[in-house]
Computed example of a mutant assay.
Amino acid sequence: MSTTTTTTPTTGGLAGLARRHPVPVFLTIALGSGWTALTIPNLVGQENGPFLVLMLVVLAGSALLVTSWTGGPGAVRRLLARALLWRFEPWRYAVVLLGMPVATLAVGAALGTAAVPDDWAAFAGTYLFMTVVFGLLLGNLWEELAWTGFLQSRFMARHGLLRGSLMTAPWFVAIHVPLSFTPGWTWSSAAFNLALVLLIAPFMRYLLGMHYLDTRGSLLAVGLQHAAFNASADLGSAGWEYAIGLVVLTVVMAALRHRPRGPGAPRPRGER
């Protein structure tokens, strides 16, 4: 007589806890390790560049680790595959690549603080490098694999686009707190940086959530938009024009997404 045994995943340990509570476990690992990585250079007075890379590794690694514990066979592969989803509308490529510099220059022009490039060809080359190569491939794609691909997608699936975006924003702010206390910081500079992050976080999460839903889960689109935001920071002499530009771009995209539609037209994805 032969017997057949089946194995079931263990319910003990950190993996078992992650299966029951994936979001708290992810946040504990990601924020605990991320804060540690970003605080070390502040304490020893070193540049934080290498530690930023470590933080990104920690964020993406935390998302992949918890996904492997909770998602079953192929879950990690499916999450990574979203980073390669490049088939979406050409107009959206224009938005994620050009929307932020256009909006930032428009805000600066309205306020008289626009930092208009002297050499547009040189600016275009530098901007595209900072967005596509340095920003996307080396940073923001992996950051958004965690924030959008793991965390916000879960929140939006349960609570919809608006609430899911707002629920993600505080954690997005939290991971950035140590960056306000890099060597040379002052209370005024830290307060300014923290206020800027608090302002942009809800709008950024909503904008990235729209891109994610409307491209059927493309982290490439999300990462490009995040990188374009960072690369637009120097287009205003006051230093905060790009934050207002983000608000403007988000409002415009939301208005276009919710424009009146014909009878029987489907609601936008993720709306509740």
Rank of each mutant, 00 (worst) to 15 (best):
I175A: 01
A254Q: 13
H211G: 06
L43M: 15
W86H: 11
G125N: 02
A121P: 00
L111P: 03
A195M: 06
S180Q: 13
H159K: 08
P183N: 14
L235V: 06
A121G: 05
A109V: 14
F134L: 14
L162K: 05
V116W: 13
T28F: 15
L38K: 06
V177H: 02
M130I: 01
S68L: 07
L56E: 10
L235G: 05
A157T: 06
S218P: 14
P90E: 08
L145T: 13
R78H: 11
T3M: 09
R267L: 15
F172L: 03
G74V: 13
M253L: 10
A243N: 12
L111S: 11
G236F: 10
R269S: 02
W187Q: 15
T70E: 08
T28N: 07
E144D: 01
T3N: 07
M210T: 02
W185H: 11
A30K: 02
N48Q: 15
A233M: 08
R19Y: 05
M253N: 04
P22I: 05
N230H: 13
D119N: 10
A122D: 02
V58M: 06
A238R: 14
L65K: 08
A157M: 03
G108K: 03
L199T: 10
F123C: 02
Y212L: 13
W185T: 10
G245H: 09
L105A: 07
P90S: 07
P101D: 09
A228V: 03
H159N: 08
I200E: 09
P101M: 10
F150M: 05
A233K: 09
S153N: 13
N230T: 03
A255Q: 09
A75N: 14
E143L: 01
T70K: 07
R261Q: 15
R82D: 08
G236H: 10
D214G: 11
L166I: 03
R19C: 05
R87V: 11
F172T: 00
T36M: 09
A201R: 00
L194V: 09
T7N: 06
P73V: 12
